[in-house]
Simulated assay, not measured.
Amino acid sequence: MKGWLIVAPFLNVNAMALFPFILLREEEMRGDVVLLNHERIHLRQQAELLVLPFYVLYLLNYLVNLARYSSHNKAYLMILFEQEAYQRELDVAYLSCRKWCNWLAFF
């Protein structure tokens, strides 16, 4: 899944995957291979969970982490989906060999 790239200058983050789109804060980010790979990993995760359950699990995981770590940054980085995406974002071939629901390995 490549995702449709949309430049959204109002974003407070560099990029965001909202199935089936990847929102980018700046036009120049279209060339950022690592950033796009990270967001495409999220698109795959979203597709596996039929989109809506992904967002529910993402939010629940964040809230549990926030209660556990009392830090937004730590809570965000410890989200299972983010752990997989950050760990594999440099491997541009990852999605071609990724196992189904591999984010479960980060439990």
Rank of each mutant, 00 (worst) to 15 (best):
A8S: 04
P9D: 08
F10A: 05
A15W: 06
A15L: 10
M16C: 07
A17K: 07
A17E: 03
L18Y: 05
P20L: 06
L23M: 09
L23Q: 08
L24R: 02
L24M: 11
R25E: 08
E27V: 02
M29Q: 15
M29I: 12
M29E: 03
L35C: 00
L35P: 02
L35E: 04
H38R: 00
H38V: 00
R40K: 07
R40I: 00
H42Q: 03
L43P: 03
R44N: 06
Q45S: 10
Q45E: 04
Q46C: 08
Q46T: 05
A47K: 13
L49K: 05
L50N: 10
V51Y: 03
L52W: 15
P53R: 03
P53F: 11
P53H: 09
F54Q: 01
F54P: 00
L57P: 01
Y62Q: 04
V64S: 13
L66F: 13
A67V: 07
A67H: 07
A67I: 12
R68E: 10
Y69W: 15
S70C: 04
Y76H: 10
Y76D: 11
L77E: 12
M78F: 10
F81N: 10
Q83C: 03
Q83G: 02
E84I: 04
Q87V: 06
R88Q: 14
A93S: 12
Y94K: 02
S96R: 15
R98Q: 08
W100P: 07
C101K: 12
